[in-house]
Design a protein around this nucleic acid. Structure first.
Lengths: 152, 152
DNA sequence: TATTGTTATACTCTATAACTATA
DNA sequence: TATAGTTATAGAGTATAACAATA
């Protein structure tokens, strides 16, 4: 049994607590709820949010190597290995040795990897709209701005 | 080796990505960073954020039973059992059968549990200040308000 | 019959250390 | 010596099902 609920429910613990004013607790709740929803949405592409994050960065213009992915995603290098392994097995990305430092492997998307990313992005976007339906567009922008300054 | 970094670093993936505008991704990063810091701060009390959350709700005026804790914290009922077991072992809370429904067990703090909570709260508060040092007090209030409306 | 709490179990995620190949 | 990636492994967190007590 899972305890995850719909977006606008809090369970029956109603009264204000120190937790309900704690930004880290609230961020954890949003992350848990949002990731769970996004995982459900990505299931039809046989992807998880972790893989989606790696794929998104591979498709960006930053041409990240595995160490950079590790730092940006707060994941251990060994976890990146297995995520990239998975994406490589399904031909969504390849590891390309950096000619200037052959220890370093740049993760580059294949053509089908880019198509997969676009499909996934649409699904995640829908899922996020759902998770944040209680905010107006302006409030959502404000939230993104504040979160980016706090977390990036 | 852990990949968690200080509050103002992003690693070397600099360019804007869809991820850097994704509220769920950003919340996940803040949650990961903030919880990691809070766990480190709580270590001196031999507490983890999970236990702290349960203790905080037990010390609130909502008098939660285990099912309510489960729903509010997005944790499985079986996980609540083990968290409450831990807190009960160290005499911070007790399980009190609800006379109106004897299946239900209300989690109530002991006197020393309340003292533990106050100590923990101070540590978590400091840790959160650290995590959110890049925001002004007004911005932080705004963030809490938006997160509460999105996540509660 | 349905619900609360509990136990047991399997699965995923995370953290740590040791190794290799390059630098 | 130090760093990028890899492997192996152990520990923490999560999900699922079955059960006892109570409603």
């Amino acid at each position: 049994m899972t305890a995850t609920k719909g977006a606008s429910e809090t369970g029956t613990v109603a009264g204000p607590t120190s937790l309900t004013h704690d930004p880290v607790f609230l961020a954890t709740r949003l992350a848990s709820q949002g990731s769970s929803d996004a995982n459900r949405a990505l299931a039809e592409l046989d992807l998880r949010v972790r893989h989606y994050s790696v794929l998104a960065l591979a498709c960006s213009d930053s041409h990240p190597n595995q160490r950079e992915l590790s730092q940006f995603l707060f994941l251990d290098p060994s976890q990146i290995v297995s995520l990239v392994d998975d994406l490589e097995k399904r031909k969504a990305v390849t590891r390309k040795a950096d000619p200037r430092d052959r220890r370093s492997k740049v993760i580059v998307p294949t053509a089908s990897g880019r198509r997969l990313y676009e499909q996934a992005r649409a699904l995640v976007s829908q899922s996020t709209d759902q998770s944040l339906q209680s905010l107006t567009a302006a409030e959502r922008d404000q939230l993104v701005d504040l979160l980016a300054r706090a977390a990036l």
